[in-house]
């Protein structure tokens, strides 16, 4: 009596589980349990010295850089607003002899290879100014004239003929997207020899002379930031300006000591005069923790 009923239950249960297992096998088989490979971010590790040498800007640097990908220039919208409505048409028609493109160096077909000459905003603005004056003087006649004297057809410049973009938008290397005016170096690019060693020598001297109170409860209040101006021979040019504000005798003692140290260490001969532009005004942070860190 009992057994047949239990057998029915067992059969139903086993069938249910088998069906569930089959469903699970089919539905999960499509999705393997393997994680996707992670994206690799390549980084270079360079030392501080290498970095300071990298930022050195030289006017006559060789332009043998690796070709950079051409990108759309997104910044610097002002010249485009001024020039584009007038200078648009003539420049497109004479595209085989486009003033901005072949002017710097005609043999090179692609202007994107030469970042130093390209993004000179003043020269460009002057050029556009000339173009605008000329086009305003003779808006219709001028565009036709340049074509007969320069009939040379360069197959490499078909792309320029087909380029229907606004001529004020010029292809430019990616580095020029930075807000700073592009050059081979950065604006503040220091000479490689300014380096960390000169600053470090100055710091070391100041730290030697600085004599902050010892055994203070929380030394964070002794951090003093001072801006100084220096003359070319390494002396203070005017009184130091304390940038940190603080209260209490501890801070005041540390601040006065720091100012005293700045005066005492005065001719800072370790700073070479050739890089005077960089160190004529510097900010120095006196941090007692640096003394213990070494």
């Amino acid at each position: 009596m009992k057994l047949p009923q239990m057998r029915t239950g067992l059969a139903i249960s086993a069938f249910m589980h088998a069906a569930l297992l089959a469903w699970g096998l089919f539905s999960f088989a499509a999705r393997p349990l393997a994680a996707k490979p992670q994206d690799v971010v390549l980084t270079d590790v360079i030392s501080a010295t290498e970095f300071s040498q990298l930022t050195k800007g030289v006017k006559n640097a060789p332009t043998v850089e690796t070709p950079k990908p051409a990108v759309e220039k997104v910044g610097d919208p002002k010249p485009a607003e001024e020039v584009s409505p007038v200078a648009e048409k003539p420049e497109v028609r004479t595209s085989s002899a486009q003033p901005p493109l072949p002017a710097p160096k005609p043999p090179e077909p692609k202007p994107t290879k030469k970042p130093p000459q390209k993004p000179d905003p003043i020269a460009d603005a002057l050029k556009r100014e000339d173009a605008r004056k000329a086009s305003e003087a003779k808006p219709k006649a001028q565009p036709q004239k340049p074509i007969p004297p320069q009939p040379r057809f360069d197959p490499n410049q078909i792309a320029a003929l087909l380029d229907k973009r606004d001529p004020s938008r010029q292809s430019i290397t990616g580095e020029a997207l930075a807000p700073a005016p592009p050059s081979l170096g950065t604006r503040n690019g220091a000479d490689a020899k300014l380096s960390q060693s000169e600053l470090a020598a100055m710091r070391a001297k100041l730290m030697e002379l600085w004599n902050p109170p010892v055994g203070v409860q929380n030394p964070e209040q002794m951090i003093v930031k001072i801006r100084i101006q220096l003359t070319r021979d390494g002396k203070l040019n005017g009184p130091p300006v304390v940038l940190t504000s603080g209260r209490g005798t501890v801070f005041e003692t540390a601040r006065d000591n720091a100012i005293r140290a700045l005066f005492m260490g005065q001719p800072y001969t370790m700073l070479s005069p050739s890089t005077y532009d960089i160190w004529k005004e510097i900010e120095i942070t006196f941090d007692p923790r640096d003394m213990y860190r070494g």
């Binding site: 239990m6 029915t8 239950g9 067992l10 139903i12 249960s13 086993a14 589980h17």
Partner: peptide
Amino acid sequence: LGLASVWVWAIVIDKFML
């Protein structure tokens, strides 16, 4: 555990009917 589940459900069905 799978066998236990099968057995549990067999008992459940059996008891329901009983």
